[in-house]
Protein backbone atom coordinates (compact mmCIF):
# COMPACT_ATOMS: atom_id res chain seq x y z
CA UNK A 1 0.00 0.00 0.00
CA UNK A 2 1.49 3.34 -1.04
CA UNK A 3 0.45 5.55 1.81
CA UNK A 4 2.24 8.85 2.37
CA UNK A 5 4.46 8.94 5.41
CA UNK A 6 4.97 12.55 6.44
CA UNK A 7 8.22 12.06 8.37
CA UNK A 8 10.17 10.42 5.55
CA UNK A 9 12.01 13.30 3.79
CA UNK A 10 12.14 11.74 0.30
CA UNK A 11 8.52 10.53 0.25
CA UNK A 12 7.16 13.73 -1.32
CA UNK A 13 6.93 12.25 -4.79
CA UNK A 14 4.66 9.51 -3.48
CA UNK A 15 1.72 11.83 -3.23
CA UNK A 16 1.81 12.20 -7.03
CA UNK A 17 1.64 8.44 -7.38
CA UNK A 18 -2.14 8.26 -8.01
CA UNK A 19 -1.81 10.85 -10.82
CA UNK A 20 1.11 9.03 -12.40
CA UNK A 21 -0.75 5.79 -12.02
CA UNK A 22 -3.79 7.22 -13.79
CA UNK A 23 -1.64 8.74 -16.56
CA UNK A 24 0.06 5.41 -17.13
CA UNK A 25 -3.17 3.44 -17.16
CA UNK A 26 -5.08 5.79 -19.40
CA UNK A 27 -2.03 6.25 -21.62
CA UNK A 28 -1.82 2.54 -22.27
CA UNK A 29 -5.57 2.24 -22.75
CA UNK A 30 -5.64 5.13 -25.22
CA UNK A 31 -2.77 3.71 -27.25
CA UNK A 32 -4.27 0.23 -27.44
CA UNK A 33 -7.72 1.63 -28.11
CA UNK A 34 -6.35 3.75 -30.92
CA UNK A 35 -4.56 0.78 -32.44
CA UNK A 36 -7.73 -1.27 -32.37
CA UNK A 37 -9.83 1.47 -33.89
CA UNK A 38 -7.18 2.46 -36.42
CA UNK A 39 -8.64 0.38 -39.28
CA UNK A 40 -11.97 2.09 -38.68
CA UNK A 41 -10.37 5.54 -38.78
CA UNK A 42 -8.42 4.52 -41.84
CA UNK A 43 -11.60 3.43 -43.55
CA UNK A 44 -13.32 6.71 -42.82
CA UNK A 45 -10.22 8.68 -43.84
CA UNK A 46 -9.85 6.54 -46.96
CA UNK A 47 -13.33 7.56 -48.07
CA UNK A 48 -12.03 11.06 -48.63
CA UNK A 49 -8.76 10.15 -50.32
CA UNK A 50 -8.23 9.64 -54.00
CA UNK A 51 -7.56 6.13 -55.12
CA UNK A 52 -3.78 6.20 -55.43
CA UNK A 53 -3.27 7.98 -52.09
CA UNK A 54 -4.88 5.08 -50.30
CA UNK A 55 -1.95 2.81 -51.01
CA UNK A 56 0.77 5.43 -50.85
CA UNK A 57 0.44 6.39 -47.18
CA UNK A 58 -0.42 4.65 -43.96
CA UNK A 59 -1.88 7.79 -42.32
CA UNK A 60 -5.63 8.08 -42.13
CA UNK A 61 -5.94 11.84 -42.58
CA UNK A 62 -6.33 12.56 -46.32
CA UNK A 63 -3.73 14.97 -47.76
CA UNK A 64 -6.02 16.18 -50.49
CA UNK A 65 -9.56 15.55 -49.23
CA UNK A 66 -12.01 14.80 -51.99
CA UNK A 67 -15.65 13.78 -52.14
CA UNK A 68 -15.14 11.81 -55.37
CA UNK A 69 -15.20 8.50 -53.52
CA UNK A 70 -18.48 9.29 -51.84
CA UNK A 71 -20.17 10.70 -54.94
CA UNK A 72 -19.06 7.97 -57.32
CA UNK A 73 -19.56 5.29 -54.73
CA UNK A 74 -23.13 6.40 -54.18
CA UNK A 75 -23.80 6.19 -57.92
CA UNK A 76 -22.31 2.68 -57.98
CA UNK A 77 -21.28 0.90 -61.13
CA UNK A 78 -24.80 -0.49 -61.57
CA UNK A 79 -27.97 1.18 -62.77
CA UNK A 80 -29.11 1.66 -59.14
CA UNK A 81 -27.74 4.11 -56.61
CA UNK A 82 -26.45 2.98 -53.26
CA UNK A 83 -29.74 4.17 -51.75
CA UNK A 84 -31.49 1.22 -53.41
CA UNK A 85 -29.15 -1.20 -51.70
CA UNK A 86 -29.54 0.52 -48.36
CA UNK A 87 -33.32 0.34 -48.66
CA UNK A 88 -33.07 -3.31 -49.69
CA UNK A 89 -31.03 -3.99 -46.59
CA UNK A 90 -33.67 -2.46 -44.40
CA UNK A 91 -36.36 -4.44 -46.20
CA UNK A 92 -34.57 -7.53 -44.92
CA UNK A 93 -33.28 -6.34 -41.57
CA UNK A 94 -36.37 -4.63 -40.16
CA UNK A 95 -38.81 -7.55 -40.62
CA UNK A 96 -36.07 -9.89 -39.46
CA UNK A 97 -35.52 -7.97 -36.23
CA UNK A 98 -39.25 -7.73 -35.56
CA UNK A 99 -40.01 -11.41 -36.07
CA UNK A 100 -36.89 -12.43 -34.17
CA UNK A 101 -37.88 -10.41 -31.12
CA UNK A 102 -41.48 -11.59 -31.12
CA UNK A 103 -40.71 -15.26 -31.65
CA UNK A 104 -37.76 -15.36 -29.26
CA UNK A 105 -39.73 -13.71 -26.46
CA UNK A 106 -42.68 -16.05 -26.88
CA UNK A 107 -40.54 -19.18 -27.00
CA UNK A 108 -38.39 -18.01 -24.09
CA UNK A 109 -41.53 -17.34 -22.03
CA UNK A 110 -42.73 -20.83 -22.79
CA UNK A 111 -39.46 -22.37 -21.68
CA UNK A 112 -39.12 -20.15 -18.63
CA UNK A 113 -42.63 -20.42 -17.24
CA UNK A 114 -44.59 -23.39 -18.52
CA UNK A 115 -44.20 -27.00 -17.50
CA UNK A 116 -44.19 -28.36 -21.05
CA UNK A 117 -43.66 -32.11 -21.19
CA UNK A 118 -40.06 -32.80 -22.20
CA UNK A 119 -39.07 -29.21 -21.62
CA UNK A 120 -35.56 -30.18 -20.54
CA UNK A 121 -34.89 -32.11 -23.73
CA UNK A 122 -36.43 -29.49 -25.96
CA UNK A 123 -34.27 -26.87 -24.31
CA UNK A 124 -31.16 -29.01 -24.76
CA UNK A 125 -32.11 -29.40 -28.41
CA UNK A 126 -32.50 -25.64 -28.76
CA UNK A 127 -29.11 -25.11 -27.19
CA UNK A 128 -27.60 -27.70 -29.50
CA UNK A 129 -28.71 -25.64 -32.51
CA UNK A 130 -26.57 -22.79 -31.20
CA UNK A 131 -23.54 -25.01 -31.64
CA UNK A 132 -24.58 -26.18 -35.10
CA UNK A 133 -22.63 -24.41 -37.87
CA UNK A 134 -25.08 -22.41 -39.98
CA UNK A 135 -23.48 -23.60 -43.19
CA UNK A 136 -24.64 -27.20 -42.75
CA UNK A 137 -28.20 -26.00 -43.11
CA UNK A 138 -27.61 -24.06 -46.29
CA UNK A 139 -28.21 -26.80 -48.81
CA UNK A 140 -31.34 -28.38 -47.27
CA UNK A 141 -32.77 -24.92 -46.59
CA UNK A 142 -32.01 -23.83 -50.14
CA UNK A 143 -33.79 -26.85 -51.54
CA UNK A 144 -36.75 -26.25 -49.26
CA UNK A 145 -37.12 -22.60 -50.18
CA UNK A 146 -36.74 -23.45 -53.84
CA UNK A 147 -39.76 -25.78 -53.47
CA UNK A 148 -41.65 -22.90 -51.83
CA UNK A 149 -40.77 -20.71 -54.78
CA UNK A 150 -39.13 -18.19 -52.50
CA UNK A 151 -35.83 -17.88 -54.36
CA UNK A 152 -34.88 -14.35 -55.28
CA UNK A 153 -37.26 -12.98 -52.62
CA UNK A 154 -36.48 -11.72 -49.13
CA UNK A 155 -38.69 -14.34 -47.48
CA UNK A 156 -35.97 -16.97 -46.87
CA UNK A 157 -33.95 -14.30 -45.13
CA UNK A 158 -36.43 -13.52 -42.36
CA UNK A 159 -39.31 -16.02 -42.33
CA UNK A 160 -37.21 -18.69 -40.54
CA UNK A 161 -36.65 -16.18 -37.74
CA UNK A 162 -40.38 -16.25 -37.01
CA UNK A 163 -39.78 -19.68 -35.49
CA UNK A 164 -37.23 -18.57 -32.91
CA UNK A 165 -34.38 -20.33 -34.65
CA UNK A 166 -31.75 -18.23 -32.89
CA UNK A 167 -31.16 -20.34 -29.79
CA UNK A 168 -28.78 -17.76 -28.45
CA UNK A 169 -31.46 -15.08 -28.27
CA UNK A 170 -33.97 -17.43 -26.69
CA UNK A 171 -31.38 -18.46 -24.13
CA UNK A 172 -30.53 -14.85 -23.35
CA UNK A 173 -34.16 -13.92 -22.77
CA UNK A 174 -34.81 -17.05 -20.70
CA UNK A 175 -31.93 -16.13 -18.41
CA UNK A 176 -33.36 -12.67 -18.03
CA UNK A 177 -36.85 -13.97 -17.33
CA UNK A 178 -35.54 -16.36 -14.71
CA UNK A 179 -34.30 -13.39 -12.73
CA UNK A 180 -37.83 -11.95 -12.56
CA UNK A 181 -39.87 -12.63 -9.42
CA UNK A 182 -42.60 -15.14 -10.17
CA UNK A 183 -44.90 -13.34 -7.76
CA UNK A 184 -45.10 -10.37 -10.11
CA UNK A 185 -46.63 -12.56 -12.79
CA UNK A 186 -48.88 -14.28 -10.26
CA UNK A 187 -50.11 -10.87 -9.16
CA UNK A 188 -50.96 -10.15 -12.78
CA UNK A 189 -52.83 -13.45 -13.04
CA UNK A 190 -54.80 -12.56 -9.92
CA UNK A 191 -55.51 -9.19 -11.48
CA UNK A 192 -57.20 -11.02 -14.33
CA UNK A 193 -54.53 -11.42 -16.98
CA UNK A 194 -54.34 -14.46 -19.20
CA UNK A 195 -50.89 -15.79 -20.10
CA UNK A 196 -50.69 -13.66 -23.21
CA UNK A 197 -51.54 -10.52 -21.28
CA UNK A 198 -49.02 -11.40 -18.58
CA UNK A 199 -46.39 -11.64 -21.30
CA UNK A 200 -47.29 -8.49 -23.20
CA UNK A 201 -48.34 -6.20 -20.36
CA UNK A 202 -46.01 -7.27 -17.57
CA UNK A 203 -43.10 -9.44 -18.66
CA UNK A 204 -42.20 -7.80 -21.96
CA UNK A 205 -41.95 -4.24 -20.57
CA UNK A 206 -39.86 -5.47 -17.68
CA UNK A 207 -37.42 -7.38 -19.87
CA UNK A 208 -37.16 -4.49 -22.32
CA UNK A 209 -33.35 -4.25 -21.90
CA UNK A 210 -33.00 -7.86 -23.00
CA UNK A 211 -35.37 -7.28 -25.90
CA UNK A 212 -33.38 -4.27 -27.03
CA UNK A 213 -30.17 -6.24 -26.78
CA UNK A 214 -31.65 -8.98 -28.94
CA UNK A 215 -32.92 -6.44 -31.47
CA UNK A 216 -29.53 -4.76 -31.64
CA UNK A 217 -27.60 -7.99 -32.06
CA UNK A 218 -29.93 -9.17 -34.77
CA UNK A 219 -29.82 -5.79 -36.49
CA UNK A 220 -26.03 -5.73 -36.60
CA UNK A 221 -25.63 -9.36 -37.61
CA UNK A 222 -28.21 -9.02 -40.35
CA UNK A 223 -26.69 -5.81 -41.68
CA UNK A 224 -23.40 -7.66 -42.00
CA UNK A 225 -24.83 -10.91 -43.31
CA UNK A 226 -23.31 -11.76 -46.64
CA UNK A 227 -23.78 -15.47 -47.23
CA UNK A 228 -27.56 -15.79 -47.03
CA UNK A 229 -28.40 -12.94 -49.42
CA UNK A 230 -25.72 -14.25 -51.75
CA UNK A 231 -27.40 -17.64 -51.87
CA UNK A 232 -31.02 -16.60 -52.13
CA UNK A 233 -30.92 -13.36 -54.13
CA UNK A 234 -30.07 -13.37 -57.80
CA UNK A 235 -31.33 -10.05 -59.19
CA UNK A 236 -29.08 -7.07 -58.59
CA UNK A 237 -32.05 -4.79 -57.87
CA UNK A 238 -32.75 -6.81 -54.72
CA UNK A 239 -29.18 -6.86 -53.42
CA UNK A 240 -28.50 -5.59 -49.91
CA UNK A 241 -25.48 -3.46 -49.07
CA UNK A 242 -23.20 -6.38 -48.27
CA UNK A 243 -23.62 -7.82 -51.77
CA UNK A 244 -23.50 -4.45 -53.46
CA UNK A 245 -20.13 -3.71 -51.92
CA UNK A 246 -18.74 -7.01 -53.03
CA UNK A 247 -20.15 -6.43 -56.48
CA UNK A 248 -18.22 -3.19 -56.91
CA UNK A 249 -15.03 -5.07 -56.20
CA UNK A 250 -15.79 -7.60 -58.91
CA UNK A 251 -17.07 -5.65 -61.83
CA UNK A 252 -14.26 -3.31 -62.76
CA UNK A 253 -10.68 -4.29 -63.23
CA UNK A 254 -9.23 -1.31 -61.42
CA UNK A 255 -11.19 -1.32 -58.17
CA UNK A 256 -12.02 2.13 -56.82
CA UNK A 257 -11.14 1.45 -53.24
CA UNK A 258 -12.07 4.94 -52.14
CA UNK A 259 -15.63 4.34 -53.34
CA UNK A 260 -15.79 1.03 -51.52
CA UNK A 261 -14.45 2.58 -48.34
CA UNK A 262 -16.91 5.46 -48.60
CA UNK A 263 -19.85 3.09 -49.02
CA UNK A 264 -18.58 0.81 -46.26
CA UNK A 265 -18.54 3.80 -43.98
CA UNK A 266 -22.12 4.59 -44.89
CA UNK A 267 -23.04 0.93 -44.49
CA UNK A 268 -21.85 0.70 -40.88
CA UNK A 269 -23.44 4.02 -39.94
CA UNK A 270 -26.93 2.62 -39.13
CA UNK A 271 -25.51 0.00 -36.77
CA UNK A 272 -23.31 2.54 -35.05
CA UNK A 273 -26.08 5.11 -34.69
CA UNK A 274 -28.49 2.52 -33.35
CA UNK A 275 -25.91 1.13 -30.98
CA UNK A 276 -25.09 4.47 -29.45
CA UNK A 277 -28.75 5.45 -29.25
CA UNK A 278 -29.58 2.26 -27.39
CA UNK A 279 -26.28 1.87 -25.60
CA UNK A 280 -27.71 2.35 -22.15
CA UNK A 281 -30.26 -0.42 -22.63
CA UNK A 282 -27.88 -2.62 -24.57
CA UNK A 283 -25.26 -2.70 -21.86
CA UNK A 284 -28.01 -3.18 -19.28
CA UNK A 285 -29.34 -6.04 -21.32
CA UNK A 286 -26.04 -7.89 -21.51
CA UNK A 287 -25.13 -7.48 -17.87
CA UNK A 288 -28.30 -7.28 -15.85
CA UNK A 289 -29.56 -10.72 -16.77
CA UNK A 290 -26.44 -12.16 -15.23
CA UNK A 291 -26.10 -9.93 -12.21
CA UNK A 292 -29.66 -9.43 -11.01
CA UNK A 293 -30.31 -11.89 -8.23
Amino acid sequence: MASTTSHAPDAGWRKHLPVLNALLRYGILIIIGFLMLYPLFWMIGGSFKNNHEIFSSIGFIPKEPTLDGVINGWKTSTEYTFATYLINTFKIVIPKVIVTVISSVIVAYGFARFAIPGRKYLFALLMATVLLPKSVLLIPQYLMFREFGWLDTYLPLYIPQAFAVEGFFVFMIIQFMRSLPLEMEEAAVMDGCNSFQVLTLIVAPVILPAIIAVALFQFMWSMNDFLQPLIYLSSVEKYPVALALKMSIDVTEATSWNEILAMSTIAIAPSLILFFAAQKYFVDGITSGAVKG
Partner: peptide
Protein backbone atom coordinates in the same frame (compact mmCIF):
# COMPACT_ATOMS: atom_id res chain seq x y z
CA UNK B 1 -57.79 -16.74 -9.87
CA UNK B 2 -59.41 -13.56 -11.17
CA UNK B 3 -62.87 -15.17 -11.18
CA UNK B 4 -62.87 -16.11 -7.49
CA UNK B 5 -63.41 -12.72 -5.96
CA UNK B 6 -60.09 -12.86 -4.17
CA UNK B 7 -57.20 -10.42 -4.11
CA UNK B 8 -53.75 -11.21 -2.84
CA UNK B 9 -50.97 -9.24 -1.20
CA UNK B 10 -47.63 -10.91 -1.81
CA UNK B 11 -44.63 -11.14 0.46
CA UNK B 12 -42.38 -9.43 -2.07
CA UNK B 13 -45.13 -6.86 -2.87
CA UNK B 14 -44.88 -8.01 -6.52
CA UNK B 15 -45.55 -4.53 -7.86
CA UNK B 16 -45.22 -3.93 -11.57
Amino acid sequence: PSKRGVAMVFQSYALY
